[in-house]
């Protein structure tokens, strides 16, 4: 169905630093397919709806989400288990989806993208011209 394209760092991977540098993370994703279409659920905690960018081009679905850091400005010494940074991931789809019908919803840090299956694609007849 889908093939991984990019391979940036996963949140689960070891992360050093305090999120000061612009790090890019690969959001953890679930992909489920039904007869109606395909749904992707990506974990993008910290991203707001206006910071999410989804594009579909030549069967490549790209997702990018920017995150506003939560680290307090006057923060003193700290203890960090996770870093903050933007999210990026791309998937190659094995079939065509109508880009106009793609819907996306962001709720509690999870981005759900639904790709409804295209209407029964009519076989295209190629007319052969006589020489």
């Amino acid at each position: 169905m889908t093939t991984e394209m990019t391979n940036p760092e996963t949140k689960g991977n070891e992360v050093s630093g305090q999120g000061r540098s612009a790090r890019i993370y690969r959001p953890l994703t679930d992909i489920v397919e039904t007869d109606d279409g395909v749904s992707l659920m990506l974990e993008v905690p910290g991203a707001s709806p206006d910071g999410v960018d989804i594009s579909l081009e030549r069967r490549v679905l790209s997702i990018r989400a920017t995150v506003r850091p939560t680290r307090p400005e006057d923060a003193g010494p700290g203890y960090a288990e996770y870093g903050e940074g933007d999210y990026e991931r791309a998937f190659t789809l094995s079939e065509d989806f109508d880009p106009d019908r793609i819907a996306a919803e962001l709720r509690n840090g999870v981005l759900t993208i639904t790709l409804p299956r295209a209407e029964e694609t009519q076989p295209k007849k190629i007319a052969v011209k006589a020489a």
């Binding site: 949140k11 974990e43 700290g78 960090a80 840090g109």
Partner: peptide
């Protein structure tokens, strides 16, 4: 993540979903 500033402590946690 835990940050300490003055007499306050700020804790943040990622809980997607």
């Amino acid at each position: 993540n835990v940050w300490r500033s003055g007499d306050a402590i700020a804790i943040s946690s990622e809980l997607p979903g």
